[in-house]
Design a protein around this nucleic acid. Structure first.
Lengths: 144, 144
DNA sequence: CAAATTACTTTTAAAACGCAAGCAATAAGT
DNA sequence: ACTTATTGCTTGCGTTTTAAAAGTAATTTG
């Protein structure tokens, strides 16, 4: 992983891993939009450059936050999935959504306002339900 | 404020405001270490350069997250305080601390592990109590 | 005036960018 | 079956933007 942590502070250290302008948006895309492929991430409205996307996917994989795999029928496209560790970012993203809903209300889109309403109704349940859903999407995970 | 938001996504937009490697550390210093002055922020172990610190304090002030003031007895040092808006970052920072406590346990310092334990005991109360405490530190706030 | 604090400027380094080439796996056309 | 696209990335290059480090300036306080 070889990250050069600036200190032993948990906040500083988390920022050393995902504290750039793009990594959390990739996690957002996987969690909230079900995106999985390079092309899907690249098509998000923020417009990440493809070389940066490639780099960040590599970093997130190295950090154990996502895994790269293939679908058996498609040897072309890589599919990226959250690991258990990756799923644990959900509560952070939820709080960020609530923060923006409160402090940037006029700026954010209508559907994200609705998402915020859903979250506020029962935050704990939302996170639990969504966590379970995401866990079921881990490749080879629910060995039925 | 003149921030160039990349999109109307709440996560992306929050990152456009505090999504750099330093802004949240300044908020951390105010919230969890009671730091107030330029020199105190500069002395944090991550070693922010003074020009970057100056810039970030300016940004946070422009964004309405902190305010700059003076103490009556000391005309030299500026003191920076959280606004109500700034205090609303607490739940995000709390989740980040919990994330690192779970995923970077071997790396983080002992006292932050203890903080995480305190938070986990009763997260909601911790945030409420701390929010009240921070609100009382807003300059000219509790007009008694 | 000396020491401390804060702000600003210059120089240097890193990160991000757009663009395009490369490559492998499919799919389509003939 | 044999090109010829097309898709899905990855990588590299030259440029621009941003961040950092260090130094300088300005201000205040004792």
């Amino acid at each position: 992983m070889e990250i050069n942590f600036r200190s032993t502070c948990p906040i500083s250290s988390a920022l050393d891993i995902v504290g750039d302008k793009w990594s959390l948006l990739i996690l957002r895309d996987i969690m909230f939009s079900g995106k999985k492929t390079f092309g899907e991430f690249a098509s998000s409205p923020e417009g990440i450059a493809t070389n940066i996307l490639s780099d960040r996917l590599g970093n997130l994989e190295k950090s154990g936050i996502i895994t790269k795999g293939k679908l058996p029928n498609n040897k072309k496209a890589n599919i990226y999935s959250l690991t258990e560790k990756g799923i644990t970012f959900l509560p952070i993203l939820v709080e960020v959504i609530l923060w923006s809903n409160k402090n940037l209300y006029a700026h954010i889109s209508e559907n994200t306002k609705n998402l915020a309403i859903t979250i506020m109704k029962d935050k704990k349940s939302f996170i639990e339900l969504m966590t379970d859903k995401l866990k079921n999407e881990i490749p080879n995970s629910p060995i039925n």
